[in-house]
Every structure is written in C-alpha cells, then in structure tokens.
C-alpha cells in the first residue's frame, strides 16, 4: 500500500488493493458529505454558539491589560526622566537630595495615568526647566 502525498487526494489516487475501491469510496464520501450537510437546526445552532465562544476567547486578548501596563510604565519612566534632567540641570550641593514625596506616590498610583500620559509633552518640558522654575 503506497499512498502518494497530495493536498486533496481523491480515492483514485489511493493505491488500494481492490479495483472497485474508487467507486465505493466515492459513494462513501458522498454519503458522509450528505450526513454532515443535513444536520438539524438545533445542532447547527449549538455548533455556531460553540464556534463563537471559542473565537471570543481570542478576541478578548491582553489588549486592555497591555495598555494599562504600558501607561503605568510610561508614567514611571517620565518621572525617572524628570528627576534625571533635574539632576543634570544642577542641584545646589547644599540642598537635600530629592526624595519621593507622598504626593508623588499619590500621582503614580492614582487612576489619572491616562491624563498623565496625554500630557507627556508638558512633563518633558517641565523637566527641562531650571531648578528655580520656568521663566516667563
């Protein structure tokens, strides 16, 4: 029995051991096709629900989680950049090193991350200003 590889083999391509295999296998395929094509409405409805439920698991995906994580990361990064730029601008030696204030914690953990992300330009600009505050 040597079956050739092909994408859609029909029974003629099967090196079967009977000369009439072609005919009855074609009939068998047709009967199976009919049985699959004549399923009742209730069964088809259940199949449809099963398919939609399976697809829904893929649609959900991690997008909401990914956005939240990205925004939280962005907020933390902006603070880190702002602090770094502040140091580069030159902090008087006499001043105590900047520490994370309770207010900063509130900002970082608040639900206003979205606003923070939307104002990234502002915070970047703010970080570039001299320690004494923005002029003009």
């Amino acid at each position: 029995m040597n079956l050739p590889d092909s994408k859609q083999p029909d029974s003629k391509q099967l090196d079967s051991n009977r000369p009439d295999d072609d005919r009855w296998l074609e009939r068998a395929k047709a009967l199976l096709d009919d049985s699959a094509g004549n399923l009742d409405a209730a069964t088809l409805s259940r199949l449809n629900r099963a398919r939609q439920a399976a697809l829904a698991t893929r649609r959900k995906g991690p997008s909401r989680w990914a956005w939240s994580a990205a925004l939280a990361g962005a907020a933390a990064a902006v603070f880190a950049i702002a602090i770094g730029l502040h140091h580069q601008g030159g902090v008087p030696l006499g001043n105590p090193p900047p520490t994370l204030q309770a207010g900063d914690i509130d900002v970082m953990t608040s639900e206003d991350d979205l606003d923070l992300a939307e104002n990234l330009d502002f915070y970047a600009w703010l970080g570039k200003q001299p320690a004494g505050g923005p002029s003009g």
Partner: peptide, 11 residues
Amino acid sequence: MAAAICLMAAF
C-alpha cells in the same frame, strides 16, 4: 526612551 518604548508597545 523607556516611555517611548512603552508607548510603542501599546501602539
């Protein structure tokens, strides 16, 4: 840079 990477990941 880190912020840009995070935003690019979200995009």
